[in-house]
């Protein structure tokens, strides 16, 4: 075998970095364009798109678009709504999906395999096909509140949260992870006198860090980034509106692109912050599951 010369190796390394940089740039461009454009007046923004200036903070830079965006839509409220819905859904999802998976993997009851298969089969159904039946369903559901029973869930937080708590993918992630836990740990705990719930709480969950991170990340991104159609049809009032639906405020008769970019930049902050916080877990979760939200 011929030895690779140092020069050759250097070249190869340079080529690799060049490729990676190029790929990174391709993915960075839209983001940079969004942030840079949010500081430009519409006229300049549009004329800049024909040149590299589109990606540079040059010319008439100001925060005007941000002031205008805040005047046009209650951005703070929308973001709070989205964060509240996301956090609540994620927490409940982790609790219920992991309990379901625990039962599927560790408890013995008739029909569990059939039920699991049915749940997993729902993965192939696109949400759009069940949106209308679900709408009819939730519009008639009762809710016991402070003022007694109310009918219909429209224009609430719960209508944005409850239908999204349990999903096949999250259950599946937990099932796969639990199956790989050493069986003897569970058996040892049983012999030591632990109840099933105690085994869940004291043995299984503390050892489930990786899958908890994966499930939380995937669910958070879905709830914050991709909730558009459902809230659009079930939430008509401004008080419960999430960020993605809020984008509609900027696509009126005349589209103010600068404000759109300012709004997008603002609502991206929580996601980017969350990503930076969870970067490591995020990358390893994609690597381990091969799934991206």
């Amino acid at each position: 075998m011929a030895l690779v010369s140092a020069e050759n190796r250097g070249l190869r390394l340079a080529a690799r970095y060049a490729t990676l940089t190029l790929v990174a740039l391709v993915f960075m461009f839209p983001l940079v364009f969004m942030v840079v454009s949010s500081f430009k007046p519409d006229q300049q923004l549009l004329s800049d798109t024909s040149s590299l200036r589109a990606f540079l903070p040059v010319g008439d830079i100001s925060l005007d678009n941000y002031y205008a965006a805040f005047r046009r839509a209650p951005i703070g409220l929308f973001m709070l709504n989205s964060v509240f819905v996301t956090v609540t859904t994620v927490l409940l999802s982790i609790l219920l999906c992991s309990l379901a998976a625990f039962s599927f993997v560790f408890l013995e009851w008739t029909g569990r395999n059939v039920l699991l298969t049915i749940i997993l089969a729902t993965l192939i159904i696109p949400f759009e096909t069940i949106a209308v039946p679900l709408l009819l369903f939730v519009s008639k559901l009762p809710w016991l509140g402070m003022e007694g029973i109310a009918w219909g869930w429209l224009n609430t937080y719960r209508v944005q949260i409850i239908p999204w708590i349990v999903d096949a993918l999250t259950v599946f992630l937990f099932v796969q992870f639990f199956k790989d836990l050493p069986r003897e740990l569970i058996e040892a705990a049983r012999v030591e006198g632990a109840s099933w719930f105690m085994i869940y709480r004291k043995i299984v969950m503390p050892l489930s860090g990786p899958v908890l991170a994966t499930a939380a990340i995937l669910k958070s991104l879905k709830m914050y980034n991709e909730q558009y159609l459902w809230p659009l049809i079930v939430v008509q009032d401004e008080a419960h509106r999430p960020v993605m639906v809020g984008l509609g405020y900027f696509f009126q008769l005349q589209i103010a692109w600068g404000e759109v970019m300012a709004y997008l930049t603002l609502i991206s902050v929580p996601v980017i912050g969350f990503y930076l916080l969870m970067q490591r877990a995020f990358i390893s979760s994609i690597a381990s599951t091969g799934v991206k939200g």
Partner: peptide, 29 residues
């Protein structure tokens, strides 16, 4: 159930809980 039989078991794979200290493991029961 196993917990009511007053038996203790030692497994081939040890089956000690990796997220607990030795003390916590021993005191688990």
């Amino acid at each position: 159930p196993p917990k009511d039989r007053e038996v203790a078991m030692v497994f081939q794979t040890y089956a000690i809980f990796p997220h607990m200290t030795v003390r916590e493991n021993m005191a688990f029961g």
